[in-house]
């Protein structure tokens, strides 16, 4: 369970995350949606203690991050694709992380097998493709067998088979009773993966709802998302010129 309460982060005059509150419940995949620059990654960094919030807090399993007794056994995370030193082998990378939380060494080989990197365990991670790097990041997230998982854009760099694999993996982890929190800007992927959705725009909560409810009022989840986030997107592409029959006021754009 992740509880986010009034989380706020400013960078100078810009408010990146604005009094954000939501829960990520166990037993389901919760999708975290928002346009580019909406504050998804910052929110995840705040939850994981990489950035300090200006106000508010996040709790994982009822406790603040600094109070976690065995961090890797309580929350697994994947932020950007590269969170490893390129000169270290996959196995050494995971062995170092395992040591920090007193995780048995054989678990390293278990997770390498789980993500399909058993054959690349002794290769230096710098030689990995984007997709392999992503798999190594997922192996690190699963190392402590944690009840809470946070993944920022986990399908980035994965091929279709990889995307199918991670979808099945995350759904099965949720089915085991874990709280799985996954950000993406790919709506179609979310429609297949998540049961619950948290949608933000300009750092503010726009929706905290089930996938079914959100897509109910629109022709598709994508339409519902665009309608919801459009007022809060910073950039806007020019819409196709409206058909001649529309009113003069609209035609001026």
């Amino acid at each position: 369970m992740i509880e986010v309460r009034d989380l706020t982060k400013r960078y100078g005059p810009t408010v990146a995350v604005d009094a954000l509150s939501f829960d990520v419940r166990p037993g389901a995949v919760t999708g975290f949606l928002g346009a580019n620059g909406s504050g998804k990654s910052t929110t995840m960094r705040l939850i994981l203690g990489l950035d300090r919030p200006d106000a508010g807090q996040a709790r994982i399993g009822g406790r603040r991050l600094r109070d976690l007794r065995w961090p890797l056994r309580e929350v697994g995370s994947l932020l950007e694709a590269r969170a490893f030193h390129p000169g270290r082998t996959a196995r050494d990378h995971l062995a170092a992380l395992a040591a920090s939380n007193d995780i048995a060494r054989r678990r390293v080989d278990d997770v390498l097998g789980l993500v399909g990197l058993a054959g690349a365990a002794r290769r230096r991670a710098g030689t990995f493709s984007l997709g392999m790097g992503q798999r190594l990041g997922i192996a690190a997230a699963l190392l402590g067998d944690p009840p809470v998982l946070l993944l920022d854009e986990p399908v980035n760099g994965l091929d279709p088979a990889g995307i199918r694999w991670i979808r099945d993996l995350l759904r099965s982890l949720a089915a085991q009773g874990r709280a799985v929190f996954v950000s993406s800007h790919l709506i179609s992927e979310m429609a297949l993966l998540a049961e619950h959705l948290v949608v933000i725009g300009q750092g503010r909560l726009l929706a905290d709802t089930s996938v079914a409810q959100m897509s109910a009022g629109a022709s598709s989840l994508e339409e519902a998302f665009l309608a919801l986030t459009e007022p809060s997107t910073e950039y806007r592409t020019a819409r196709p010129a409206p058909a001649p029959a529309t009113s003069a006021r609209e035609g001026r754009s």
Partner: peptide, 30 residues
């Protein structure tokens, strides 16, 4: 959730564990 949380061993991570991580990190770079 309760079942998953119950598997957490006693104690907490400390200097000894983090130092082991740092030693593996240092020695595993050519």
């Amino acid at each position: 959730m309760t079942a998953l949380a119950a598997r957490l061993p006693a104690g907490r991570y400390g200097f000894r564990h983090v130092a082991r991580m740092e030693w593996i990190k240092l020695r595993s770079l050519r």
